[in-house]
């Protein structure tokens, strides 16, 4: 089915028309350069995303710490990764950059803390 996409590679923002053919190939038109065609082909075959979420903190001044993936992962892994994120908790103190889950679900991406949470004062 033909669909219009706005390419995000450069400010030209070309409007691409892309069509997934029966044999799995993608036909692209409207791209101003080869990078656009490559981008939409990747998008349609194996889109990758990063997400941000929160992890429960034990013994911290705050209840949660913000986290994100250190690199993009296939879109289809997002919900399974969210399940992993919901399962874990981390004990304060937490610092920015701390790895909360290393190589989550063998995706190659870590779940890293993006803010700090100090331990609750006694």
């Amino acid at each position: 089915m033909k669909k219009i996409y706005t390419c995000i590679i450069c400010p030209r923002s070309c409007e691409l028309e892309a069509d997934i053919l029966p044999d799995g190939q993608v036909s692209v038109s409207g791209n101003g350069c080869p990078r656009g065609a490559e981008w939409i082909r990747n998008e349609l075959s194996d889109p990758k995303r990063t997400i941000a979420s929160s992890v429960l903190v034990e013994g911290g001044e705050k209840e949660i710490v913000s986290v994100r993936l250190s690199s993009p992962v296939p879109l289809r892994m997002i919900f399974p990764i969210m399940d992993e994120i919901r399962k874990v908790s981390v004990t304060a103190p937490v610092s920015i950059g701390d790895i909360i889950i290393r190589d989550v679900l063998s995706s190659g991406a870590d779940v890293i803390a993006t803010s700090s949470v100090l331990a609750k004062k006694e």
Binding site: S54, V55, L56, E58, E63, I64, R86, V88, S89
Partner: peptide
């Protein structure tokens, strides 16, 4: 309710 509950729900 809470988004993350204790006991990592």
């Amino acid at each position: 309710g809470k988004m993350r509950e204790c006991n990592g729900k």
